[in-house]
Design a protein around this nucleic acid. Structure first.
Lengths: 361, 361
DNA sequence: TCACCGTGGCGAGCATTTACGACGTCGCGA
DNA sequence: TCGCGACGTCGTAAATGCTCGCCACGGTGA
């Protein structure tokens, strides 16, 4: 590949001039500029980014680490972050950890090696080592859902409580009292390590249910390990095997909801007549499922913008160490309906009454 | 961030020694090594990748450009490529074009600026400029579905013909004669520019149908522009509006099939009893749809491995300029069934006979 | 004639790697 | 015991491609 010297020689100017032209500075005479441009085109010159960044001493590079790019949710968020970053004059470098703590450390080190000017970490896993490295490097960073903030680190908290509250209230208003929370863990998880978003969502569910104590809401939880849909299906099966009673289910994420729906269908249950289902993420497919899935929406576009804005203000040293909150909303579709007594039959369980349905106003 | 000088000073050695230690060379005395290691740890030293790559004159970096990372299919392929690359000692840099030709050019230039040692381009769009730049730079590359190969460029051709042949034969064996091909274009498409995978798949359909001439198969095609599922739904609506007759539909991609299914449901049609549907990509959700979607599978894992293998052999200069073929397979699930006369009624069209169903053996 | 401005060259970094060479130590043979 | 060569260890310096501050040069206007 041609270097700046080759271009300089061909255009009979110094490398400084080539550099000026390549960077669009206007202090070059038009005639000279044209000569240089011609040489650049002829040699298909592309400035070596390594040399450039080294010389400039800054990179205009943002890093993003996610748990799994194959997950459409992260795909969409990545997309939005990339656009937002580009609009602000930054490039984006992407890494994926496959839910592995070691891979996270590796990815962070690599990002620091690239001297990213800011780093966003949106993973379900997190380790003390990462925190330490990040603190030491003083690289501006943004976490998602990790509680910690510091001088250079901000945190974006997704308001799971709010979203789940809306979902539960909706279900309660529909008359549901026995609500199943379906939780899944990615396969490669070492169980002892807490997985942020998962435990946060679970805690939110438990906390919210407590708020509905007076309505006698009874929570149930099933867990299963594996890739989303499959684990969802198996989890719902397990719930039946364990004779859990429920008239509505909240899935921890949409892919999981997909499996739940499938498991329910396979069992001959109708949705929403027999069981109501609510998802989480409001992914693009919700609308096209059968029935269309009611789901808690995490606004990706807003998230992306928030991440980049936050990162940039951290970089510029103002407002660092904040905790921002991203609101969530329930998007109602057709996968939940009001509880009717007949539905009990389909569960094939004791006819024990759940109390009369609430006034649905 | 600490530089190699800081480490050298703290460990009272030269930078060359630090370099040797950091790169795991064994020509350093254990005592010295320990001192250096301690200094590295203390300062949280991370070698500057820009300086390193510049000095080394090579990058061990593979580039990957896709049309849309938010698309789960690309997400999964990316994942598999990344793993494969890592196994071969390469890093992966990712870019996404949003189906824009200009973005493609930008992305390619950026990759060349990073001096990737190999570049994989898996986009539906392609321009002559990209070809020219790539040829000139002599960077080893792999395309997907672009026909061209050259001294440094290989091509992986996905065997759409084979996959669609299997799909059509399957449908024909089930008695279907009027088959609708549902095609969608991404929004930002300038229509005049040919979109590779889309036109390839369409051509494959037409070619295959011709092979079934003797069975009196009659093809129909609808197109719509927009994001997959939505466009699929609208396309199927349009097909009815235009009074196209069909008993089975093949969607150009799974997200599109999702929309087709949805549109059909909304119209009160049952699947597969009234209309059979076949998707394309065999994405993870097929299995969990209602009904589970029969789809043509493009093996992602194999694709990833193929891309990396091909790239590496191009880099090593052997077997460059090849065209490889990736086979595709029909994964049969429950969204298609044999044609029964009653289904005609649901279309509300003329009772014109389609001839007797084939022997289904 | 002088000051100033527009233009473009010069050279010093930027952080790292690597070839090469210096230095010291050790062993072995005379 | 001395000397020489080999080897292990580490430092020196050049090289990588580019940017940017500074300066020189020539032309223009006052």
């Amino acid at each position: 590949m041609a270097s700046i010297y080759d271009v300089a020689k061909l255009a009979r100017v110094s490398t400084a001039t080539v550099s000026a032209v390549a960077n669009g500075q206007d202090k070059v005479e038009p005639r000279t500029r044209r000569r240089v441009l011609a040489a650049i085109k002829k040699l298909h010159y592309q400035p070596n980014l390594y040399a450039r960044n080294l010389a400039r001493g800054k990179t205009c590079l943002l890093g993003l680490i996610v748990s799994d790019i194959a997950n459409p949710f992260f795909g969409e968020v990545t997309q939005s972050i990339r656009q937002e970053a580009q609009a602000c004059g930054y490039e984006l470098s992407l890494a994926s950890t496959q839910f592995s703590g070691e891979d996270l450390v590796l990815a962070v080190k690599r990002m620091l090696g690239m001297r990213v000017t800011g780093l966003a970490i949106m993973t379900t896993e997190m380790t003390a080592e990462v925190l330490e490295i990040l603190q030491a490097s003083k690289t501006p960073a943004v976490f998602e859902d990790v509680g910690t903030v510091s001088e250079t680190i901000s945190n974006i908290r997704i308001d799971y409580d709010g979203g789940i509250f809306k979902a539960v209230r909706y279900l309660v208003d529909l008359g549901h009292r026995r609500i199943l929370f379906v939780r899944t863990y990615p396969e490669s998880t070492e169980q002892e390590r807490p997985l942020l978003s998962i435990s946060l969502r679970t805690q939110a569910f438990l906390k919210v249910v407590k708020q509905f104590e007076s309505s006698r809401v009874e929570p149930e939880i099933v867990s299963y390990t594996g890739p989303g849909p499959k684990a969802g299906q198996l989890a719902i099966q397990k719930a039946f095997d364990e004779r859990k009673e429920f008239t509505a289910a909240i899935a921890i994420a949409d892919p999981v909801a997909l499996g739940v729906l499938h498991g329910l269908h396979r069992r001959g249950l109708r949705i929403p007549e027999d069981i109501s289902v609510v998802g989480f993420d409001n992914s693009y497919l919700c609308e096209y499922l059968h029935p269309p899935l009611t789901s808690v929406d995490i606004p990706r576009g807003r998230l992306g913008k928030m991440v980049v804005d936050c990162l940039i203000s951290n970089i510029e040293g103002k407002h660092a160490g904040r905790e921002l909150v991203l609101e969530t909303n329930l998007v109602v579709r057709e996968s939940a309906t009001c509880l009717i007594e007949t539905s009990r039959a389909h569960l094939g369980r004791s006819g024990k009454s759940l109390g009369r349905p609430l006034d649905l106003r």
